[in-house]
Design a protein around this nucleic acid. Structure first.
Length: 492
DNA sequence: GAATGCGGGTTAA
DNA sequence: TTAACCCGCATTC
């Protein structure tokens, strides 16, 4: 039983998700039915990947992602679509005393995000800056979720061209930690004050002339020290996600106010968001713009730093100092289109496949990795490519519905052309040549380097909306598929 | 208050 | 037609 090697690039074998081994698209009228296994939940999906999660997977049920994904209305209640919000960073790209960087998780709520961007960097008081995601041909990376039978199908399109934000659980943990700390500090100060006042009362014979001072220590604004960078807010991953990650080691115990919080970890390389070094921000931007060159976007000096300002990140994201206008998105991914291979399918476009194919390699392996932090953005490369994703309003039944229905009329052609997934397990062993590149490219993005070891956190939510199923019989997932692997058992 | 999902509607290509 | 995006609403935590 072994997981992928520390460096998945060294894996010559095709180590891909189970979802990638099967041939399906989130648009398919019928998704693979008799699944043999499931993928373990992937917090940090990257690239054009597909996963098939168990419908029992709590994280999948919640459509969680390490990336800050917001719901996007695709007018298709069958498929839940989410788009990446990017990451919030310090506009100066200041480096905190411990060498980490500010990489906050953008608030999902629009209003909350606007408020967030008005806040200042707790480290240098510079403006916070939202780096939008442009990893899908100039548009945000999109994630698609679809429930089918007893599986939750996940498909991601695009390669995040920005650092990772802190994960959702990380944000929540940090905020709760700050809240606890504030609360405890407040109480402690109050207690100390009362004690001192008691002494004074004792000394002065009971005259409490200074009790009004009590009000001076009340209110969170009196505890701004809590937001100072030196405040020992755990900065690394704490996640509720259930999978483990080779990059995540142990989690140090951190307690706040005597209450043991979920433990955190300080790992040397907590956020490897770039799939390969040449595309890392450090490589792509050899000469950073000085902090003075930054526009003070979203600046609002009246907004005090708050809990959102204490997020720390690993020093590997050395994109700091990039001017927004300098983050040209060099995307030279060409758009061949799936249709050129399969012909007009008459249903949802699969241009993403063609997109990857035309690249002659997955973006990970191509110099045209859509990284905006390149030193030499290609002036000729189109900044926007027409990418057709999965938003067609079709005849799907609601995603939440119990029975998946499809319009046979609409998808007949497609089904004839690409029906391997409809047959029992043919796709397990048959890789259509046309998809090899994508799959191969995704393999490495989906596993290994990208994953975070996260501690298992007890399920916090049990009363989740449960998916309902209909007309599907559960397959036996206990068996291995030849050389396949099982995430659940950390076994490949 | 914020996250999340849904859905109507608009806009641009 | 398609996909991105905006917005409001409801629900949940």
């Amino acid at each position: 039983m072994s997981r992928s090697s520390a460096n998945p690039f060294e894996d010559a074998d095709c180590v891909c998700s189970y979802g990638m081994k099967l041939t399906w698209d989130i648009n398919d009228p019928k998704l693979p039915q008799e699944l043999k296994q499931f993928d373990s939940f992937q917090e940090w999906t990257e690239g054009y990947v597909r996963f098939i999660y168990s419908a029992e997977d709590k994280n999948a049920q919640r459509h969680l992602s390490g990336w800050a994904m917001r719901n996007t209305n695709n007018h298709n209640c069958q498929i839940l679509k989410k788009s990446c919000l990017g990451v919030v960073v310090c506009s100066r790209g200041c480096v905190l005393p411990d060498g980490t960087k500010m990489q906050l998780r953008p608030a999902i709520c629009d209003k909350a995000r606007q408020k967030q961007q008005k806040k200042l960097c707790s480290n240098c008081n510079a403006a916070l800056e939202l780096i939008p995601c442009r990893g899908h041909s100039g548009y945000p990376v999109t994630n698609f979720w679809r429930l089918d039978c007893k599986a939750i199908f996940f498909q991601a399109k695009g390669v995040h061209d920005h650092p990772r934000p802190e994960s959702k659980s990380e944000t929540e943990a940090r905020r709760s930690a700050v809240k606890r700390q504030m609360s405890s500090s407040h109480l402690a100060q109050k207690k100390r004050f009362l004690e001192s006042e008691a002494e004074r009362y004792h000394d002065t014979g009971g005259h409490l002339s200074n009790m009004h001072h009590l009000s001076c220590v009340e209110g969170p604004e009196r505890f701004s020290l809590l937001t100072e960078p030196s405040f020992p807010i755990p900065s690394q991953h704490y996640s509720s996600f259930q999978n483990t990650d080779p990059y995540k080691a142990s989690y140090d115990s951190v307690s706040f106010d005597g209450e043991a919080l979920p433990t955190f970890q300080k790992c040397s390389n907590p956020r490897i968001y770039m799939p390969r070094p040449p595309c890392g921000y450090e490589f792509a931007v050899p000469g950073y713009i000085s902090s003075s060159s930054f526009p003070s976007l979203y600046k609002d000096s009246s907004s005090p730093p708050d809990a959102d300002h204490v997020h720390l990140n690993g020093p590997q994201h050395n994109f700091a100092g990039l001017n927004v206008s300098d983050r040209n998105f060099d995307n030279t991914i060409k758009h061949h289109g799936w249709k050129q291979i399969f012909g007009k399918t008459g249903y949802g476009d699969r241009s993403d496949y063609g997109q990857v194919q035309a690249n002659a390699a997955h973006p990970y392996y191509n110099g045209d990795y859509p990284c905006r932090y390149r030193s030499t953005p290609s002036p000729t490369a189109p900044t926007l490519q027409t990418v057709i994703t999965t938003t067609t309003k079709v005849s799907y039944q609601p995603y939440k519905s119990s029975m998946v229905k499809y319009s046979d009329n609409i998808y007949d052609i497609k089904n004839l052309q690409n029906c391997n997934h409809m047959t029992d397990n043919m796709a397990d062993t048959i890789f259509p040549e046309v998809k090899t590149q994508e799959d191969f490219g995704v393999i490495r993005s989906a596993l290994g380097y990208e994953q975070d070891i996260v501690p298992t956190k007890s399920e916090q939510v049990e009363n989740l909306d449960t998916y309902r199923y209909g007309g599907c019989t559960a397959s036996s997932f206990s068996e291995h598929l030849g050389h396949s692997f099982r995430y659940e058992n950390n076994e490949y």
